[in-house]
Write a protein that binds this DNA or RNA. Structure first.
Length: 206
DNA sequence: CGCCAGATCCACT
DNA sequence: GTGGATCTGGCGG
């Protein structure tokens, strides 16, 4: 459990679609008080200034500085007035691209994740939430893992990192579904429909 | 289960 | 001023 190697910077320095695909099945780890982790089951690629859904489409700005930086760093941004999104910067420095982590399945620290989710969401009388449902959206997993703007620019490959990805068995092609990215309602074609979303629903059963 | 409205604030043309 | 890489609760089938 604790001995698995972390994904090195060379993993993230590759083409974004490759990184997005290969992140499936890998273990996202967050050290926050205790160790929290989950297997990545959905990712999405945002690639360069020509991708009109990518935040870097307007070029270098204070917000996109991290995207233009070195691979293996977290790009965390705030949206919809209340949600944080976790991305991992890809490709060599100078080329703005990243992979959005859209969903994980809790492995360690489910109790803590549940508590963090409850703290942020209004909870009246409701049925128990299945583990996989705690982190099945980008804003939900960020909240469950305690990820916010303070982690923007965090180096996932640095010694002492409090957020990183550990190596796990690769996911077979037959378990991977490829489709269009989610939530790009106002993005022009072809960017709105390109199949840059990668996911699996196999792990959710466990 | 699907559809819809509302929440709430930041970055940008 | 506008719209967003979202989530939730409420309502209808």
């Amino acid at each position: 459990m604790l001995g698995m190697p972390r994904l090195p910077r060379s993993f993230f320095a590759r083409p974004t679609l490759t990184v997005a695909r290969e992140l499936l099945g890998q273990r996202l780890v967050r050290l926050a008080g205790r160790r929290l982790s989950g297997l990545i089951i959905e990712t999405e690629a945002y690639i360069g200034q020509t991708d009109l859904a990518c935040h870097a489409r307007f070029g270098r700005t204070p917000r996109t500085e991290v995207l233009f930086g070195a691979p293996g760093h977290a790009y965390v941004y705030f949206t919809y007035g209340m949600h944080w999104m976790l991305n991992v910067v890809t490709e060599p420095a100078g080329f703005p691209a990243a992979v959005l982590i859209r969903a994980i399945v809790p492995v360690e620290g489910e109790v803590v994740m549940r508590a963090r989710r409850r703290a942020g969401a209004a909870s009246a009388g409701r049925r128990p939430v299945p583990p996989a449902r705690l982190t099945d959206g980008p804003a939900k997993l960020a909240q469950a893992l305690g990820i916010d703007g303070s982690l923007n620019g965090h180096d996932l490959c640095a010694r002492g990192a409090r957020l990183f990805v550990e190596r796990a068995p690769p996911m077979a092609d037959q378990l991977v579904e490829v489709g269009p990215r989610i939530g790009l309602n106002n993005t022009p074609e072809p960017w709105k429909s390109v199949a840059w979303n990668f996911r699996t629903h196999i792990i959710e059963g466990a």
